[in-house]
C-alpha cells in the first residue's frame, strides 16, 4: 500500500488540482473565477505531463561536456525525457493565448453589462 502511494501520489495531486480548476470552470458564478479555473486546470495538466518525463536520478536534458564530443557513450537514464518538456512549452503558450482571448471577451461583456457575475448578466440580458 505504501509503495503504491509513493509510486503514484504525484499523479493524484495533479488530478486533484485539475478537478479544482474544473470545478471552478463549471460551477463558479464570476467570469474571472472561471478564467482562473481554466488556468488551474491547464497548469495541472502541464504538471502531469512534466512528471511523466521524470526519471529517478537523472539530470536536465542538456548534454554535458563529456557527452558532447562523443568521448563517452551517452547513458539514456542519465537525462530526463525531453519530449514532454517540448510539448508543454507549446501547451503553456496555448494556455496564455486562451487566457488572452477569454479576458478580451470578459472585457466586452463588462462593457455591455457592467458586471461579471453570471446570474446578474443573465438577469440583465433578458
Amino acid at each position: 500500500m505504501f509503495d503504491l502511494v509513493m509510486a503514484k501520489y504525484n499523479f493524484w495531486i495533479y488530478i486533484v488540482l485539475m478537478m479544482i480548476g474544473f470545478y471552478a470552470m463549471i460551477a463558479k458564478n464570476n467570469l474571472i473565477k472561471k478564467i482562473v479555473g481554466i488556468n488551474i486546470f491547464q497548469t495541472a495538466i502541464i504538471l502531469f505531463y512534466i512528471s511523466i518525463s521524470f526519471k529517478r536520478g537523472a539530470t536536465l536534458p542538456i548534454l554535458t561536456e563529456s557527452d558532447m564530443h562523443g568521448h563517452t557513450t551517452i547513458e539514456i537514464a542519465q537525462y530526463l525525457n525531453p519530449l514532454p518538456h517540448v510539448l508543454m512549452l507549446t501547451a503553456i503558450v496555448v494556455m496564455v493565448a486562451t487566457l488572452g482571448v477569454a479576458l478580451a471577451i470578459a472585457i466586452l461583456i463588462y462593457r455591455k453589462y457592467h458586471t461579471l457575475e453570471e446570474d446578474e448578466i443573465l438577469k440583465e440580458a433578458k
Partner: peptide, 24 residues
C-alpha cells in the same frame, strides 16, 4: 454574442483539455 462566446470558450476549453489528458 460575447456572453455566448464566453460560454463556448469555457466548454470548448474543457473539451480541448480532456483531449490533452487523453493524449497524456
Amino acid at each position: 454574442a460575447p456572453l455566448a462566446s464566453f460560454r463556448y470558450l469555457i466548454l470548448g476549453t474543457i473539451g480541448a483539455c480532456f483531449y490533452l489528458i487523453g493524449a497524456g
